[in-house]
Write a protein that binds this DNA or RNA. Sequence first.
DNA 1: CCGTAGTTTCAAATAGTTTTGAAAATCCAG
DNA 2: CTGGATTTTCAAAACTATTTGAAACTACGG
Lengths: 186, 186
Amino acid sequence: MGTPRLIPSRNELAKAQDEFIGAWGQMGSLWGISRTMAEIHALLYITGQPLNTDEVMDRLQVSRGNASMSLRALVDWGIVTKVHKRGDRKEYFEAEQDVWAMSRKVIRERLRREIHPVLASLFEIRDETANLAAFADTPRATVEAHNRRLDTLLDLVQMVDRLGERFVGSEGKGLKLAASVLAKIP
Amino acid sequence: MGTPRLIPSRNELAKAQDEFIGAWGQMGSLWGISRTMAEIHALLYITGQPLNTDEVMDRLQVSRGNASMSLRALVDWGIVTKVHKRGDRKEYFEAEQDVWAMSRKVIRERLRREIHPVLASLFEIRDETANLAAFADTPRATVEAHNRRLDTLLDLVQMVDRLGERFVGSEGKGLKLAASVLAKIP
DNA sequence: CCGTAGTTTCAAATAGTTTTGAAAATCCAG
DNA sequence: CTGGATTTTCAAAACTATTTGAAACTACGG
């Protein structure tokens, strides 16, 4: 039944890879990277082999420019590394295979890009509002309530930041440890 | 010195609120909501009062349609609720003031929208590839390595999902508890 | 019922992001 | 050096997401 298959297993494996790439691509937004970046990462991860720019282009049907920029961004995030192959002038790219290390890098990068700036802004705003009661012809209680709400949120964000830094800080085990501790709670 | 200020403290408070709204708006991507949604939420949270659609429109300079849709989305996420004011035909909206409850709702929503579908896809793919070794003219080892990588990632995502569900599951304390346990680790 | 205040919807416009492709820059073997 | 191979850059195009605004709808007091 169905279409004759000439090289069935190569096709089957590739098909499974493609589905994985598609699924992982959807997670792009969750990781905060573009769909293509996520797909390239998925491809490199699932094949487990270093691939060069042309192979990535061919497999995912993206332009050279896009492949180049996305690969560079993945290297910046630290979840893909360049490797040189002796006797080949092309650059090859390989995905981090340790999923814990990978998660750590993603979390760290998001802290750096998204939490830190917000935290800095919130601190600034808090400092500005601190000596605000002075001018006030706004009821003191109103200003105080504002400050309380701001501080509450600041504490939350700060806690996220501190936990993040703690369990993701450069060396190994932290994250896995945190996960297993949590898994054992009640 | 500088510009004369006629109603200084109202301006000062409003200015602080605006800065907060701007900062929180930037976190939109982190929460997975649009900038306007994040800003409306920030406004409702920081003022601490129920506001109606027109007040939101005026304060944030957005269209009626946008305000309406964004408010509805916030209600869907569960971090803003409608309130009726006696003797007023307008609908008012109020932000969840408990930041832990708020975080729980955001996390739950993101699990539901982003993790669950990916998890489902990964399971499907795994099932398809499980009986793949059969066809193989691809080296058995290659297929096995593929399956191993897929399973590793599946385990990771599944763990995230389970931890998420555990500590975010409808009732109270879970998340706060998890945070304090983590804060005491090493 | 009717008229009006209030809310929702949605097609079109705008803004923002990603992708392309070709030109420019870089790299390296000979 | 030189010339071809490879990679990077970036303006323009394609695509996606958000926002607008006005029309349709709903609810309610009179």
